[in-house]
């Protein structure tokens, strides 16, 4: 294990030092591991990142300087999946179609304003990797509620006096319902989660068609916690089943990591200021919803395994 981690840490990062992410940015950790695992899985293949308006418009660096060791095309907020489709197709016409074209879209872009476009690219089964970079709010504009904001969370547009009602959009089931070749959730927590993360990127890299990777990224300013705790918080998100690690491979659902002794969700929520107003019945309701979704995933796993659903 230690050897594996050493190797991962020593690999060249395609997200360079000097990028403009905040201290403790979880998505920056995700980006590093995503690009690292993609390059390791397919060393000969170039990568084009297509990034809609988000924190990453800024993190990418002050133009013409770039914080990336790969091409980056920054697009309007709603059209990244369509633009990636255009790039993939055009590169094919130039004999460069082997390049991975990757969308790196936020939860706002993916669940809300760009959703029709993401859905359409999935329906066309475009040969793209779509990474949902989920920090659970519109962070670049200063923490506003999106379709990916979790139940009960404070944001600047769901203040404590009127917090987010209902659960975040179940984008995993929605995207899986498109019958895409591969979908997985990713979390760069401690070593077991990170291994799972990189194995899924490796799997996605070897497939064709629309691959959807849903990566949870902790956000110190938006989730309200000290910058040193991002990895621990993501680990707790997984251990509490708040963020289940799963994959849907050719229609077969699989929970890829089962916490042996699941933490109560309060052990995750309690680490962050955005949930500090939750207690009593409201907290119990969040726990209930987390448990119900886990049960649903168990049933999906059982059902698709026994039926051998393939697409």
């Amino acid at each position: 294990m230690a050897v594996w981690l050493d190797e991962v840490i020593q690999e060249e990062s395609l997200l360079y030092p000097g990028h403009a992410a905040c201290a403790g940015c979880g998505p920056a950790v995700n980006m590093r591991h995503f690009l690292g695992a993609l390059r390791a899985a397919t060393p000969g293949r170039e990568v084009v990142l297509v990034i809609p308006a988000s924190c990453w418009t800024i993190i990418a660096g002050a133009w013409p300087v770039s914080a990336f060791g790969v091409s980056v095309y920054l697009t309007p907020f709603a059209s990244a999946a369509a633009e990636a489709s255009g790039i993939k197709s055009a590169l094919g016409q130039r004999g460069l179609g082997d390049a991975h074209v990757v969308v790196w879209g936020g939860d706002g872009s993916t669940n809300d304003i760009g959703f029709a476009t993401v859905s359409a690219a999935a329906e066309r089964n475009e040969d793209l990797i779509y990474v949902l970079n989920d920090n659970e709010a519109y962070m670049n504009t200063g923490v506003q509620k999106s379709g990916g904001t979790p139940e009960g969370a404070w944001t600047t547009t769901t203040p404590v006096a009127a917090p987010r009602k209902g659960m975040k959009k179940d984008i995993d089931r929605i995207m899986a319902a498109h019958g895409i070749p591969y979908l997985a959730t990713l979390a760069a927590g401690s070593v077991p989660e990170l291994k799972d993360f990189r194995a899924k990127v490796t799997r996605a890299a070897g497939l064709h068609g629309f691959r959807f990777l849903h990566a949870l990224g902790a956000c110190p300013p938006g989730w309200r916690y000290p910058t040193g705790q991002s990895v621990e918080i993501v680990r707790r998100a997984v251990e509490s089943r708040y963020f289940p690690l799963l994959e849907v491979d050719a229609g077969t659902w699989r929970i890829t990591y089962r916490p042996k002794h699941p933490l109560p969700v309060s052990e995750f929520l309690g680490t962050q200021g955005r949930f500090s107003h939750l207690s009593g019945e409201r907290l119990a309701l969040v726990q209930q919803h987390i448990d119900e979704r886990w049960d649903l995933l168990e049933r999906l796993e059982a059902a698709t395994a026994s039926e051998g659903v393939t697409k």
């Binding site: 697009t75 633009e83 790039i87 197709s89």
Partner: peptide, 23 residues
């Protein structure tokens, strides 16, 4: 390539990006 898109916003986005990539 004849590409059916999901909106004009996507259609222009697709075409602009495809031009940028050489088509």
């Amino acid at each position: 390539v004849f590409a059916n898109l999901d909106s004009e916003h996507s259609m222009f986005g697709y075409a602009l990006a495809a031009e940028r990539a050489g088509s």
